[in-house]
Amino acid sequence: MDFSKRIDRKKTNSIKWDKYTDKDIIGCGTADMDFTSSVDVKNALIKRAEIGIFGYEYKSENYFQSIINWNKKLYDWEVKKEWISNSPGIWAGIRIAIDTFSQPEDLILSHSPTFHPIDEIIQQSKRKAVKSNLRIQGNKYEIDFEDFEHKLRLGVKIFVLVNPHNPTGRVFSRQELIRIGELCKKYNVLVLSDEVYGPLAFKEFEHTPFSSLSDFSNFSITFNAVSKPFNLQGLTHAILIIPNKELYTKYSTALSGYDFDFATNVFSLVGVEAAYTYGWDWLQELKNQLKYNIDYCETFVAENLPKLKVFKPEGLFLVWIDFSQLHLDYEQLEELFISKSKLAPTFGKVFGNEYSNFVRLNFGCSSERWEEILVRLQKGINAIEDI
């Protein structure tokens, strides 16, 4: 795979690129990458398409075994076939789980900054959102465990853990996860652990599946997918790992009730199997490219944009940046990006109104494009500061 290749995604119905009428804007917000999938995945999808029939399918033994082998290789986690379920996407699975394992008006806890689909799901399911703010320590975010336990005491029913965390980029340590687990066990809280970015943790940071620790598998559900690490978001398929038999049975009943027991797109099944069977080397090359990009960003900002505060991610292709020292309101920050710099990021306001001075940038692209993004940002900031 040549990750240095600059790919034009305009006029491909890309949400990231085609929702802007200004053709000069660079999309650097929506969380998919500007890289083609591995040749093994593409060939597997083509081979499946050539069959020419796309009816109902069972999940094959190879599908299940690829998931089992992947978790063993990546995490040394012994996943069993009878633990594996699915949903049509991560957020669909979390919504089904919230509907299944809680009641209207129940409290659902998440960390803040909070990825906006969590809030939307909680609101739409008529539950009540509770937030525990991650606190800034130097140039990274850490869990405020005193506040976290305080929120659990309120009677929280479910905690939605996002690890690696979007948008801050934290890969929570084993010690942090153990403390989370001990507190959730103490207060009888079900943990829904979104770990879709886990395979993208950089080598100096170890991602640990929450359910693999201690007895946490008794009160947790793991949500995973090939979507983020292998750039297969459009296949909309999530893998759930549910070791607790009672939880598994309840979730399976709900899945069937939504008529989602057949919600396994035939190409999704092929994509999972191909990515997990043949994608290891491709993933390592991808991470090398991402590491180069984020290291370049750190150096560039330090040398050219010292008023910005970069929270260097430990395992994503997204970087969270604080623009507070520029003293811009939200409308001015939006103008800086869209009008002055011709860049379309994810503005921090979608993670909570208190983050209106933050921006999330997607560096899942060629080094050439990433360097252009940062140079455009520098020129836009210089233009504003010269006024």
Rank of each mutant, 00 (worst) to 15 (best):
D119T: 13
K151H: 12
V79C: 08
W77M: 13
W83P: 00
K128G: 00
D147Q: 14
H116L: 06
G155I: 11
N133C: 07
W91Y: 15
I96H: 01
H111V: 02
D147H: 12
S112P: 00
N139D: 14
S85C: 13
F115D: 05
S87F: 02
H165G: 08
K140S: 14
S112R: 02
Q65N: 15
D144R: 08
A129P: 09
Q137N: 09
I96F: 09
L161T: 02
K80F: 06
F159I: 14
Y75P: 06
P88H: 08
D99E: 15
S85M: 14
N69W: 07
G169S: 01
T168C: 07
G138L: 06
S85L: 15
D99G: 08
S87R: 04
E142D: 08
D106P: 12
W83Y: 11
P164N: 00
T114W: 01
E142F: 06
T100I: 12
F101N: 06
S110Q: 03
I158H: 02
Q123R: 14
F159E: 04
A129V: 09
S112K: 02
D144Y: 03
F148T: 12
K157D: 00
S102E: 05
V162R: 10
V160F: 05
K157Q: 01
H111F: 15
S112L: 06
V156C: 04
K128D: 02
P104Y: 07
T114S: 05
P117W: 02
N86M: 07
H165R: 07
L154I: 09
L74W: 12
S112V: 03
A92F: 13
D106M: 14
V160W: 03
G155Y: 08
R135K: 10
D147R: 11
E146M: 11
Y141Q: 05
I143E: 04
D76T: 15
A129G: 09
E142K: 15
I136V: 15
I108M: 08
S66P: 12
D119I: 12
N166Q: 09
L74V: 12
S66H: 09
I67Y: 05
G138D: 04
K72A: 08
I84G: 01
R127Q: 11
W70M: 07
Q123E: 14
S87P: 04
I108D: 00
D99P: 08
G89M: 13
G89D: 11
E149W: 11
L109R: 09
I94K: 06
N133D: 14
W70E: 00
V162G: 01
L74S: 12
